[in-house]
Design a protein around this nucleic acid. Structure first.
Lengths: 339, 339
DNA sequence: TCTTAGCACTTAGAAATAAACAGTGCCAAA
DNA sequence: TTTGGCACTGTTTATTTCTAAGTGCTAAGA
């Protein structure tokens, strides 16, 4: 592609992002320093190459998905954050009482707020968690809390009412057996080993082992189900974007945001914490949106942060914001190492 | 109101609920066994009384809020559940491995599913919870989990990274002091007493008491903020109702469902577990919806269950469903007492 | 060969008009 | 008190008309 075409594509994408209206040839005369006819010729060329398209024969052009893609890969520069944005983010991170995962959530809340896109934080998947410790805490009134904790420090607690005939000391004993034998087991394999390794043992030592077994079984089961922490902010922010005028489109997306399984699929599998952009068809969530995501790793925890917006998203700004957060997290990580 | 007018109002409300279209005089001739002219006369009368209204001069009638209210208070009979519905609900309740609160959540999920309304379960408010026990669980790697548990059995855990210079045994010691001195304190008053009663004590016994103090302070603070368990199902179900065709209305409601503070206000303050109906203006959530709610009490826990639907809601069916759940919970409660 | 002015042409979208329809209010007769 | 009849009213839908925005193409100019 020639230089002038690149510049033209860049201007078209940015104009459309700003205004949400198809871009006509006249609009860009000044920027390109030539007449509308020349621009029309170049536009026809860009259209042949598939970078832009029109809604109907006599409308202005809008970027195609291929056009957006070329833009983000070749033409866009991440935007520097405004002083205000930096200040806001730093305030959140510098609050040392916040666990880092809470700080990330708060940052993404803020980003959703200032950008009018929807933000998602996906906590780590249970598959990568190993059993660290299970504890039983008696509460009196025949209740106990079973607490499951993994090597990455994720904790889930579940409360049980125990049969009056069961001695709580026995439950505690079982928890000690589990801790000895299953320490370090991937959390989603614990229940299998519980059945085949622990159950036979306790069946000899404990009267009502079936009931005790069930307590632990349910606690682990619950853990596996609950543990993938999903944090969404501004589910409805994206509807402030002009592309969402139509009831059908809104309903479609509301439904998708409500479907936790679909949300979890957004999880980024790559290992690097590079920022990745999935435009329209490229993401599995919804054809009409772009998802910008990146993975974070810190203090042994990991997760994915993602921004969901229309394809006509302010790519440079969002990438700038995520860049900043990533750098900050990285700094924390290396700072941590030094200590 | 005369008998025939009551019957007419009932028919109008039920017809409108079924069809979502304004009711004309002809539509009810057969039901009322008289001519359309007669019905028109009666309708004019009902309109004078304020029970029905029209959108414009020559349209059919729709119930006014006053009309709905009269209907639910005087004309409606709760609907018997279908065999299928009963079966589904019983399957959920009879799963003895489910904590009751989970069973209630599941029931409400199901109700949202079969009715196309949105359902909400609000767990008890922290104000009514008393501190039962705080525990510290060391995890190694300089991390601890602080666990707060109340008399009603609600548990929240929070993880902290502790400064390497702090002896974890000291933290545990503080937790014991707190347990001795603050047992039974309303959970939202704990932090005040923590500052004025506990802090002075530990400041003498412990080196870095500020940091230790902060751990507990944050754990309790978090508890107060997180503890009001909100469970919403079918946020988007209600948009299947024909009143939600317009993008503006949908956005408005999406926003409200996303506002946790607003949702929490739905909490029913009354003590009885009678079913209450708040139509349109009567509820503080949204003028265009009806909220049907009731309080449940069981095994010392309490909460509110609510259904949010259009004013044109199937009142008889929803009341029937909630009635059934309430009865079931009550039975559980008295069954529990007998044991 | 590239750029540009000019013009005919296309389409969406808004505004205006018309026809069909659903339902009312009221009058007069049963 | 009930009912048939009829004029009237406002919504809805389809049709037409008009305008604005923007294109593609041609021919002339640099």
């Amino acid at each position: 592609m020639e230089e002038r075409q690149k510049l033209l594509l860049k201007e078209i994408v940015e104009y459309y992002i700003k205004t949400a209206r198809p871009v006509g040839s006249k609009a860009l005369c000044e920027k390109l320093n030539c007449s509308s006819a020349t621009i029309r010729n170049e536009m026809a060329h860009l259209e042949d190459l598939g970078y832009i398209e029109k809604n109907h024969i006599s409308s202005g052009r809008i970027p195609s998905e291929k056009g957006y893609k070329y833009y983000v890969e070749n033409l866009m520069k991440p935007k520097e954050l405004s002083g205000e944005d930096i200040l806001n983010l730093q305030t959140i991170f510098s609050n040392r009482d916040l666990e880092l995962s809470d700080a990330i959530n708060k940052c993404m809340d803020m980003i959703s707020d200032i950008t009018n896109y929807t933000s998602i934080v996906l906590g780590k998947n249970s598959k990568e968690n190993l059993l660290q410790q299970v504890s039983i805490i008696p509460l009196g009134n025949n209740k106990v809390v079973a607490l499951v904790c993994t090597d990455k420090g994720i904790v889930e607690s579940k409360q049980f009412s125990v049969d009056i005939t069961i001695d709580i000391a026995e439950i505690v004993k079982v928890s000690e057996i589990i801790n000895k034998m299953l320490f370090g087991t991937p959390i989603d394999e614990v229940n299998e080993r519980l059945e085949f390794e622990i159950k036979p043992i306790i069946s000899k030592q404990i009267d009502q082992y079936e009931k005790v077994y069930n307590i632990f079984y349910n606690a682990f089961d619950d853990f596996v189900k609950n543990t993938s922490n999903v944090h969404i902010s501004g589910k409805s922010k994206i509807f402030n974007q002009p592309e969402y005028q139509d009831a059908k489109d809104i309903k479609k997306l509301v439904n998708k945001f409500d479907d936790e399984n679909l949300i979890k699929k957004i999880d980024e599998s790559s290992d690097s914490n590079e920022i990745k952009i999935y435009i329209g068809d490229e993401n599995e969530f919804d054809d009409d949106v772009t998802i910008i995501k990146s993975k974070y790793h810190v203090k042994g925890e990991e997760g994915t942060i993602a921004i969901v917006g229309p394809k006509r998203m302010e790519y440079d700004r969002v990438v700038g914001l995520l860049d900043y957060i990533n750098k900050y997290i990285e700094d924390l990580e290396s700072g941590e190492d030094k200590k």
